[in-house]
């Protein structure tokens, strides 16, 4: 460690000396002065990082530790937090709404993320073939990603998939052409379909991963495709044997990001269900239930325990993704 500490400033001093032959103030310095300079640089760095350290302590790590403590208490903001040991965690084991919220969230994540990524990759492949007007298409497809998480779009979704909403109007007139008058459900108010409408909303926001895929596809040398073609590989073979392996780091990156995002879905479910997670808890996302417990009923202890479970789930998934990535992600050699 000391060797490292002494080496670097010496190298820096050399450089300074060489650069400063024109009469600059920087001359080769003795080791002690260099060490002092390093200390000064450290202090400067901590100065620049001061807001970040403060935020890390007060807004991020402090609250994480505090929520671990609160998860062992019964606390409603009024009065003190009463230590109840593992009671909150025990309650989780037989809380049917918690189980429902986990089921809803997992279903959402495992259906919508693969669909969204498949769509993103497919469009990126089409756009990557030197299509004219690429920036325009890219912008149009990307726009929903920017708007998708907003209250306004959630309101729009509620209207489109409502009983007499846009989708049903279109289906009815399409059915009318064939002399059919199907009885259509109000998609958002039917427990069978409500979650499906939110899955569609998430797939609709495929633009962000698509832009990342596009950037990744650019990195694949054309040469590989030409070589594969010379060897007689068709389009499907080229996709599976050239594109996919070389793109695995990007696929992995998108998968981790979009899964984490999907686990945190809140706004859409909150607005579409009017804050209830209904109909009959079919859109009771985990974060929505956490909100109801923490800020509806002010069960801060239970909400903290739920927050920790969420942290564990997301941490666990990220870890599994990273471990599994060793077997399928190809980083080149």
């Amino acid at each position: 460690m000391t060797a490292v500490l002494n080496n670097r400033p010496a190298a820096g001093a050399d450089r300074g000396g060489a650069g400063g032959t024109g009469g600059g103030p920087r001359l080769p310095r003795p080791g002690r002065e260099a060490a002092a300079r390093r200390r000064r640089e450290s202090l400067t760095a901590y100065g620049f990082l001061a807001p970040w350290f403060l935020g890390l302590g007060l807004i991020t790590i402090g609250p994480i530790i505090a929520s671990l403590y609160f998860s062992f208490t019964d606390y409603s903001l009024i009065g003190g937090a009463d230590w109840v040991g593992l009671e909150n965690y025990r309650r989780m084991l037989d809380d049917p709404r918690l189980h429902q919220s986990l089921a809803v969230t997992f279903k959402y994540v495992f259906i919508s993320v693969p669909l969204q990524l498949a769509m993103a990759l497919a469009l990126a492949m089409v756009l990557d073939r030197g299509v004219r007007g690429l920036p325009l298409y890219r912008s149009v497809y990307y726009l929903p990603s920017l708007l998708g998480g907003s209250v306004a779009v959630a309101i729009l979704w509620r209207r489109i998939f409502g009983a007499n909403g846009l989708i049903n109007q279109i289906l009815e007139s399409a059915g009318g052409l064939f002399g059919l008058s199907p009885s259509l459900p109000g998609w958002v108010s039917d427990p069978e379909y409500a979650l499906g409408t939110l899955i569609i909303l998430n797939v609709w926001t495929f633009g962000a991963p698509m832009v990342i895929f596009l950037a990744g596809l650019r990195q694949i040398p054309r040469m590989y495709y030409e070589a594969a073609q010379v060897d007689g590989a068709g389009p499907a073979r080229r996709f599976w044997s050239v594109t996919v392996p070389l793109l695995t780091p990007i696929i992995f990156f998108n998968l981790v990001l979009q899964m984490i995002n999907a686990f945190q879905t809140f706004t859409q479910a909150f607005v579409v269900s009017g804050g209830t997670g209904g109909p009959s808890d079919s859109t009771l996302f985990y974060t929505l239930y956490l909100y109801q417990e923490g800020f509806g009923s002010f069960n801060m202890g239970y909400a903290s325990a739920m927050a920790w479970l969420l942290l564990m789930i997301i941490g666990g998934f990220t870890a599994v993704n990273f471990l599994a990535s060793k077997y399928w992600v190809f980083y080149g050699d």
Binding site: L56, I59, L77, F263, Q264, S304, L310
Partner: peptide
């Protein structure tokens, strides 16, 4: 530096829902 940088990267992944309750109390 390396440690803090890693911590910073991890905070990107941290869901706001995990810290919202104690933040509210604070």
């Amino acid at each position: 530096k390396k440690l803090f940088f890693a911590v910073m990267l991890m905070t990107i992944m941290l869901p706001v829902h995990v810290v919202i309750v104690p933040q509210y109390i604070l």
